[in-house]
Deep mutational scan, measured.
Amino acid sequence: MEVRTIKVFTTVDNINLHTQVVDMSMTYGQQFGPTYLDGADVTKIKPHNSHEGKTFYVLPNDDTLRVEAFEYYHTTDPSFLGRYMSALNHTKKWKYPQVNGLTSIKWADNNCYLATALLTLQQIELKFNPPALQDAYYRARAGEAANFCALILAYCNKTVGELGDVRETMSYLFQHANLDSCKRVLNVVCKTCGQQQTTLKGVEAVMYMGTLSYEQFKKGVQIPCTCGKQATKYLVQQESPFVMMSAPPAQYELKHGTFTCASEYTGNYQCGHYKHITSKETLYCIDGALLTKSSEYKGPITDVFYKENSYTTTIK
């Protein structure tokens, strides 16, 4: 009895394709271990004539594949690729409408935090270190965002349907971005203890939790000093293409032309909904596939993004 075979390709990165001759009487799992086709788990399936010449994702289970996976995804987590594939199996079914010149995501599976993050990423200057993220990001900007969303979920250790947080998501993504040249110098002034300067680099240099107003941050924000008295913390120097200011959701007025974009969060910790506000020729609110415009805006804002380049204080 002759062994019926077909020729397929296996890959971990969709760049390096490895030619395989597979036995049609055995499952993919018996031949390769966990195997995925377009995100779908085909591990328990036997090869079919229609699979001839198709590319299958496999887990990096030998040295060659491990090197290829690390170079593309910059992670050695053995569960990463499987999590990416199972997320992709959902995100490829989502709709990605162009809204006001940006790629958004039609609401499904509690994905409003991903839509808000995706919209924000198209408006701030950011370059990702893992080629996987950078490639998928370019495709997302062009309207094909399924891979990018699935990668975000995998890097953030999230599953489809789980509630997510924009600030946490951005923080994970910033860790995989090139923020080497970003720098922030802060000064804390206390009447009792004097003053202390701190220099922050990388992710810490672009994120701040405690106030939404970048102007206020430049002037000074009140913080408790270690001595128990009130101290003032203010920005001395900022070198970065953008800054992200966050605070627990509270009524906040966004003035046209003073910011790049913002995240609105309605609801409580267990259950809520994100919308995205962007400042173009007027203010726009993007909620999944829905767009509304207004000249002014007041609502429960939790993150505001500002364009920056270089700032030095005039406070002496």
Rank of each mutant, 00 (worst) to 15 (best):
V3C: 11
R4G: 13
T5L: 12
T5Q: 14
I6N: 06
K7F: 11
K7I: 11
K7A: 14
V8P: 06
F9W: 11
T10F: 10
T10Y: 12
V12C: 10
N14G: 15
N14E: 15
I15P: 05
I15E: 08
L17N: 09
Q20E: 10
V21Q: 11
D23M: 12
D23H: 10
D23S: 12
D23Y: 09
S25E: 14
S25D: 15
S25A: 14
M26I: 14
Y28I: 05
Y28L: 11
G29P: 05
G33F: 04
G33L: 03
G33W: 04
P34N: 13
P34E: 13
Y36H: 06
Y36G: 04
L37V: 09
L37I: 11
D38Y: 09
A40S: 13
V42R: 05
I45L: 13
K46D: 12
K54D: 11
K54I: 14
K54W: 12
T55V: 12
T55K: 10
Y57W: 11
Y57F: 13
L59D: 12
P60K: 00
P60D: 09
P60S: 07
D63L: 07
T64L: 11
T64F: 09
L65R: 11
V67I: 13
V67K: 10
F70P: 04
Y73D: 05
H74K: 08
H74N: 08
T75P: 04
T75W: 04
T75A: 09
T75D: 09
T76A: 15
P78C: 10
S79R: 13
S79P: 00
S79L: 13
L81E: 06
G82N: 11
G82I: 13
R83M: 08
M85E: 03
S86P: 06
L88C: 05
L88H: 06
N89P: 06
H90K: 13
H90W: 09
T91P: 05
K93F: 11
K93C: 12
K93H: 15
W94H: 04
Y96M: 04
V99T: 10
G101T: 06
L102S: 06
L102D: 05
K106S: 13
K106D: 11
N110Q: 02
N110W: 03
N111T: 04
N111V: 02
A115M: 06
A115R: 02
A115F: 05
T116I: 05
A117Q: 00
L118G: 04
L118I: 09
L118W: 05
L119M: 08
L119I: 05
L119P: 06
T120K: 04
T120E: 03
L121M: 08
L121Q: 03
L126P: 07
P130E: 04
P131E: 02
A132E: 03
D135L: 08
A136R: 02
A136L: 03
A136Q: 09
Y137T: 03
Y138F: 15
R139F: 08
A140W: 02
R141M: 13
A142L: 12
E144Y: 10
A145V: 01
A146E: 08
N147H: 14
F148V: 04
A150G: 05
L151F: 04
L151K: 05
L151S: 06
L153G: 02
L153H: 03
L153I: 08
A154Y: 01
Y155L: 07
Y155W: 04
C156Q: 08
C156K: 02
T159S: 15
V160Y: 01
G161S: 05
G161Y: 02
L163W: 08
G164L: 00
G164P: 01
D165Y: 03
D165G: 08
V166C: 07
V166A: 09
V166L: 07
T169L: 08
S171Q: 12
L173A: 02
F174L: 11
H176S: 05
H176C: 07
A177N: 04
N178T: 05
L179N: 00
L179H: 05
L179I: 04
L179D: 04
K183S: 10
R184Q: 06
V185K: 07
N187K: 14
V188T: 15
V189P: 04
V189H: 13
V189D: 14
C190N: 00
C190S: 01
C193P: 04
C193S: 03
C193A: 04
G194K: 06
G194S: 02
Q196L: 09
Q196Y: 14
Q197M: 13
T198R: 13
T198Q: 14
T199L: 07
L200M: 11
L200Q: 14
K201Y: 15
E204V: 06
A205G: 01
M207D: 04
M207C: 08
M207R: 07
M207W: 07
Y208A: 11
Y208E: 07
M209N: 15
T211L: 08
L212H: 05
L212A: 04
S213F: 00
Y214T: 01
E215M: 06
E215Y: 03
Q216R: 09
F217P: 01
K219W: 01
K219A: 12
G220F: 02
I223Y: 10
I223L: 09
C225Y: 00
T226M: 10
T226F: 10
C227W: 02
Q230S: 12
A231V: 03
A231I: 03
T232K: 08
K233V: 13
Y234Q: 08
V236D: 01
V236L: 08
V236I: 12
S240V: 02
P241L: 04
F242R: 01
M244D: 01
M244V: 00
M245R: 00
S246T: 00
A247D: 04
A247M: 07
A247E: 00
A247I: 02
A250K: 11
Q251V: 11
Y252P: 03
Y252G: 01
Y252K: 04
L254S: 00
K255S: 08
H256T: 12
G257Q: 05
G257K: 03
G257W: 01
G257A: 08
T258E: 15
F259S: 01
T260A: 12
T260E: 10
T260N: 08
T260K: 06
C261R: 00
A262T: 00
Y265M: 01
T266V: 10
Y269E: 15
G272W: 00
G272N: 00
G272P: 02
G272Q: 02
H273F: 00
Y274M: 00
K275H: 00
H276N: 06
I277L: 08
K280N: 13
T282P: 00
L283M: 12
C285E: 12
I286F: 11
I286Y: 09
D287A: 00
G288A: 04
A289K: 09
L290A: 13
L291R: 08
L291Q: 13
T292S: 11
S294K: 12
S294R: 12
S295Q: 15
K298V: 15
G299A: 08
G299D: 02
P300H: 11
T302V: 11
T302M: 00
T302Q: 04
D303R: 00
D303Y: 06
V304Q: 00
K307R: 13
E308C: 09
N309M: 09
N309C: 11
N309Y: 10
T313K: 14
T313A: 14
T314Q: 15
I315A: 15
I315E: 15
I315W: 15
